[in-house]
């Protein structure tokens, strides 16, 4: 058995991704984009700092004439509880679904065939016959290197659906 060479994620990104920011010889671009990135993150973070100021440093807020209103405090407290309850519900939901999945894997997916084998065989035959008729036999279709589909050979949107319905193996 010939051993396959496994490629690491780092190697893949080196091969497939090129970014002048990370390459040497572009230091002006690197500095400029770093400054922009820091500024952009400040725009994201500062509103949160600003709104959190009266809570974590009340005397600073007074010093800066930052008035807090009842509605703001109330909204904060309300959201705090709302999101806390949401985390609880999401956790219960996710854990119970995972337990259900464990059960399904153990008793269903690893033991039973979940698709209808006979329908599949019929569908395969129906489609095969259709392709044979329209584009040539299977051996030809699978070996031809260039084939041009004429406009009249194009499939209708419902071609496959209609075929399945006709042979009583509807989708």
């Amino acid at each position: 058995m010939k051993k396959k060479h496994q490629v690491t994620r780092q190697e893949v990104s080196r091969r497939l991704v090129s970014d002048q920011y990370f390459e040497s010889g572009h230091w002006i671009l690197t500095i400029w984009q770093s400054i922009l990135a820091v500024l952009a993150w400040l725009v994201v973070i500062l509103p949160f700092v600003w709104l959190a100021l009266p809570f974590v440093m009340p005397e600073w807020a007074v010093h800066l004439n930052f008035r807090t209103y009842f509605e703001e405090l109330f909204t904060f407290k309300f959201l705090h509880w709302f999101l806390l309850i949401a985390v609880g519900l999401v956790t219960i939901f996710s854990v119970s679904l995972t337990i259900r999945n464990n059960h399904r894997f153990k008793h269903l997916i690893s033991k039973e065939v979940l698709h209808d084998e006979t329908r599949l065989v019929v569908r395969r035959r129906v489609l095969g016959d259709f392709y044979d008729e329209r584009f040539g036999v299977q051996e030809f279709r699978e070996s031809v290197r260039f084939y041009s589909i004429k406009a009249v050979q194009n499939l209708e949107v419902s071609t496959v659906k209609d075929l399945y319905q006709k042979y009583e193996v509807a989708l």
Binding site: V87, V90, S94, V95, T98, I99, N101, N102, K106
Partner: peptide, 15 residues
């Protein structure tokens, strides 16, 4: 949901 889902996959999911 994403965060909790990952933790569930790592800790609770057996397959």
């Amino acid at each position: 949901t994403w965060f909790v889902g990952v933790i569930c996959y790592k800790l609770v999911f057996k397959h």
